[in-house]
Write a protein that binds this DNA or RNA. Structure first.
Lengths: 351, 351
DNA sequence: CTGTTAGCGCCTTCAT
DNA sequence: ATGAAGGCGCTAACAG
């Protein structure tokens, strides 16, 4: 392709690379900037000290070629990738997208990208996802809760990647836990109702088997009531995942019983909003005939004709805090760490 | 480490690998199974024909070692990864997690994993994300809408990865579009209201600049009304993203005007549910005093005391269909393809 | 501050 | 049906 038929020189190679649509590599940048590949690599990763002039030349070359580093090559060479594995139980429940939003916010502006997996609350699937994500040698793995299969736990402990277990802090984490005490949150719900003078308290819940945190809150609720010498006068649970529709139906079932009830604690806001809808449809005055309290502090609860009384669990903050801590140190520190993002009662108008 | 001090043999190496916690590689599997690495690779990828007996031996070795392929190495060698890049405008609006849920469902059972990015409706950020995701040489890139910066479009067209543009089908895609005609959906909303006998129709909307599809529906709505010789008698829009709270406030603003209104079309269900809340709080009878129609078919709309009349946009199906098509063929086909997942009116009780 | 030398673990191509 | 050789693009030592 050269005019004189001699061996291709560098600029010719470059030219060909561009014309052929071959993605430029470090080597191309290095040639253009007249430095070694290594130096280009250092500039890109901001490692070691580089002469200002050199850095400029390299950056100019990168710009000119539109060079984008090949992440697979980088990962292979360094045996660690810019991937953050994120394992969520579900995407149907809005709290997990919000957690993901926090994670994503913590990652924005960094070269790290989240790679996700969804377990559908199945620990066996979680285990497979852990294995499949570890195959990418991620910088960190984020999951929820402390329940894992034995093998999953071994994989997590054995790998050198950082591990964050989110949402809950009522147990000892492998590496890092970020969340709130659901047991305490349940107690706080009980105390709030007691403080407001309610004594005949019922419970409406969803699937505990999948959602251990909902169960922890239920237990805390019982303990909080016990502090005041009270206990639940009635309870009703669906086997389904939480949803507005299930909340509506399940409250109806609870009220169909013969217990005298003046307040209901719900397993979460989805269920509570559904409960509110039932009250609207059935002509039950809230909170005069029946008080309602939820958990999570979802936006929809605050948009009801009467804002829902609930407990704010800061999902976004949990995700973001986790990422911030994980990125602080790429190696797992000698001691585990627990970050309590807390909760707060939202004093709505329904309890 | 050997008893007799001789050179380490294969099984000793294997032993060391396991004890040292060194992750086993293809080479380890190959030695154990007494075949070449190549053969192991073929077995794993199910490529070429392999003697049954060999395959068994290899699989046994894989099992025994707990071998997990290094994805970075695979990606580098094949210059293509098992990553599906997914770029979403937002995670706050439930429709995008639902889209992601569909994508994830389509990916489950395959070795592909989604790597995500969120643009916040910013085309500049989308461009950066495209570049950053292409650096992983993904098998495909999924994004929403047809609006991209020129450079983003060039990157997408130039790369050989498959590209899906979701949600909308009112334009020509780069490779594949999956979604519905939002213009048609708007028309359908208008026709529904007209059929129901409403003639004084108002509109409540949110940020069109970010949400082009909402604008398309608005236009379709106008066209649908025009077919019946009608036009909007009033409209009110927030500059904010859609939300229940904004829907509530914006309907209040619309009704504060002096137009006679008997039905309101909302830009989506979030806004419509908020509108419903306003009606509840303000004592407006729905649909007798005021009819409401939304768009999306969210669960929350169906849990209202009166189920919301709305248009179902099947986000889950869109995501899943897109993945199915993308995985059918790893190379971009010569012609572009458009898949219409359609929509349907949900005949609720509010219009 | 910069360059040289070896791989990282796998897949592709070509043999056989 | 299987093996051998080479290289993907980058980073990690080590020099200097």
């Amino acid at each position: 392709m050269t005019d004189d038929g001699q061996t291709l020189d560098d600029s010719a190679l470059l030219h060909i690379a561009q014309v052929a649509g071959t993605t430029p590599t470090l080597a191309h940048v290095a040639r253009l900037a007249n430095v070694s590949e290594n130096t280009v690599s250092r500039v890109i990763r901001n490692k070691g000290s580089i002469a200002v002039e050199t850095r400029q030349r390299v950056n100019a070359a990168i710009e000119q070629l539109g060079y984008v580093p090949n992440r697979a090559a980088g990962s292979l060479a360094s045996s660690s990738s810019l991937i953050i594995g994120v394992i969520l139980p579900s995407l149907s429940n809005i709290v997990f997208p919000e957690l993901l939003r926090g994670i994503n916010a913590g990652l924005s502006g960094t070269p790290y990208r989240p790679m996700i997996g969804v377990t559908d609350y199945d620990l066996g699937i979680e285990q497979e996802l852990i294995s499949s994500l570890l195959a990418w040698q991620p910088a960190a793995l984020i999951t929820t809760g402390f329940e894992h299969t034995d093998q999953a736990r071994r994989m997590l402990e054995g790998s050198r990647v950082r591990v964050a277990e989110l949402m809950d802090i009522d147990n000892q984490p492998i590496d890092l836990a970020v969340g709130l005490s659901h047991c305490e949150a349940g107690r706080a719900m009980a105390r709030h109702l007691v403080r407001r003078g309610y004594t005949n308290i019922g419970y409406v819940g969803h699937d505990w088997i999948a959602d251990r945190r909902a169960y922890a809150r239920y237990q805390g609720l019982g303990e909080g009531l016990a502090e005041a010498g009270l206990s639940l006068v009635a309870e009703c649970r669906t086997e389904q995942p939480s949803s507005t529709l299930e909340g509506r139906k399940t409250l109806a079932r609870l009220l169909a019983g013969d217990a005298e009830i003046d307040a209901v604690a719900f397993s979460n806001d989805d269920m509570a909003v559904g409960g509110f809808m039932h009250c609207l449809a059935a002509g039950i005055a809230v909170p005069d005939d029946l008080a309602l309290i939820g958990f999570n502090g979802l936006e929809i609860g605050q948009a009801l004709p009467k804002p829902l009384t609930t407990v704010l669990s800061n999902r976004f903050a949990i995700g973001k805090a986790a990422v911030n801590v994980l990125l602080e140190d790429s190696k797992r520190p000698p001691e585990t760490r627990i970050i309590d993002t807390g909760f707060s009662i939202i004093e709505g108008a329904t309890a």
